[in-house]
Write a protein that binds this DNA or RNA. Structure first.
Length: 197
DNA sequence: TCGCTGATCATCT
DNA sequence: GATGATCAGCGAA
């Protein structure tokens, strides 16, 4: 994965992130997650479901930055969600990390996710994934290809998506675009509206 | 396993 | 003042 590769629309990047491994190191303790489910979000006026739909605001400013940034936002009063910023700088786009499998630092992930009934639940869901990795608002805007690659790392491990679906509620040209991609994996979050590819 | 509900607050209208 | 890219806990089947 490179910054140049990420400089394309989110719906093109999303499937290529499947299988990639995101590592976050906190106090010398790494937690790595193999990404199993993602969702693409478009730019201004493109995708009504996207934070960027109505233009740039202080919150979504990171989405307008260079590809390869981490966009972390707070929602529902209690949850953090993480995205990888895509598209050329200045044109908003992001890929939401919806689910993953913890493949390194399982013990630490368990400590952070005490409510998880089994290891497969550690990062099964967008907010669970950020919690397992120890991500919060302080990680917003972090550059995955910047100087601090010892703390944040994205390693490519391309796997073809097994499940592809278009998001409902997206009209116009967007209705033709597949936005959601997943592997056929037990850690994929329960909601599967998809026709299988 | 499914469906419902409460929690809780930053952001935008 | 309403809403949301959600989760966990509960009861029912």
């Amino acid at each position: 994965m490179s910054r140049r590769l990420l400089s394309r629309p989110a719906d093109q990047i999303a499937p290529r992130l499947l299988g990639s491994v995101l590592t976050v190191v906190c106090e010398d303790s790494p937690v790595s997650v193999r990404i199993t489910e993602v969702e693409a979000y478009g730019g201004v006026g493109e995708d009504p479901g996207s934070h960027a739909f109505r233009g740039r605001t202080p919150r979504n400013a990171t989405m307008f930055g260079p590809p390869g940034l981490l966009y972390v936002y707070f929602t529902y009063g209690m949850h953090w969600c993480a995205n990888v910023v895509t598209g050329p700088e200045g044109k908003a786009g992001a890929v939401l990390l919806r689910a993953g499998e913890v493949i390194e630092g399982v013990d630490l992930a368990r400590e952070r996710r005490t409510s998880a009934k089994s290891d497969r639940d550690l990062a099964r869901g967008p907010a669970r994934l950020t919690k397992a990795l120890g991500l919060d608002g302080s990680a917003d805007g972090v550059d995955l290809f910047g100087d601090d690659t010892t703390t944040f790392r994205l390693a490519p491990r391309p796997i073809a998506p097994a499940i592809v679906s278009s998001r409902t509620g997206v009209g116009g040209a967007g209705a033709q675009t597949p936005w959601r991609f997943a592997l056929d994996d037990p850690t994929v979050s329960p909601y599967r509206p998809a026709a299988r590819a």
